[in-house]
Amino acid sequence: MKKQPRFLSLLLIIGLFIFVLVPFVPLVLSSLSFGWRWPDVFPQGWSLRAWEYVVNDVRTWQAVGISLWIALIVTFVNLLLALPAANALVRYPVRGRWLFEAIIFAPIIIPPFISVMGIHLSFLRFGLTETVLGVVLAHIAPTLPYMFRAIMVSYQTLSVDWEDQARMLGAGAMPRFFHVVLPHLLPGILAGASLSVLISLSQYLITFIIGAGQVVTLPILLFPFISGGDPAIASAYSLLYGAIAIMALVGMDAALKRYYQMSRVPQQEKGVKP
């Protein structure tokens, strides 16, 4: 009786693991393959050609750095925009709120490159093209909705009573935010930030149009190989891309855990039991 659910959950975890890992297997094989003809299950030979190219190219590592840097700034800016917006939208009866939400969520529904093609001319005039700043601004459109959504949901689950309680203990606006609101929002912020980072990392077209070849992120290097039909190098880049994305997520998660641990140190030295 007791064993069964455990067994079941173990099975589920293994299943999930396989589900997540299986798509990577062909990528790994293809990145290392030499002569992999279609009906064969495994390649006939192995070659490090693709990995040598990817790893030895300085551009690869510059691109990794720039990709992460952009994703980080984008996420930070999203946070600064989404926090007050979500707060206002959840807490106050804003008139025309559906319109506001529609504008924020539009980039998810309308392909963002349509709007980006539109702003390309304006960015050109402002001298924002070919700059990291321009790319960051352009990445905000497709990423902000997710950050906004995640934070809004978190806000909705935060009863005003908590802030009222802090107020009654003498906490002004800033302490209230840092002691009550932020800790509650953190998991939501992490979810939003993860999506924001992932989506920013995966932007090709927007980066390409606004960055115009001068802001070279990982997808900019990767795409020509996908469409150009060099599956080995495309696979190697994809794997590298996946690894970077996972590292970014794990890193953020670890940062959150550290934060919680830091605010929870006393638990380790929990001494007197009454």
Binding site: R59, H120, L121, L124, R125, Y204, F208, I209, A212, G213, Q214, V216, I220, L221, F223, P224, S227
Partner: peptide, 22 residues
Amino acid sequence: RVPMNDAQDIINQLLDEKIAGK
């Protein structure tokens, strides 16, 4: 060397730059 996905993109880019007076 600046990697491109398609030469067509180069032309579109230049077209916009021309319109914007870059």
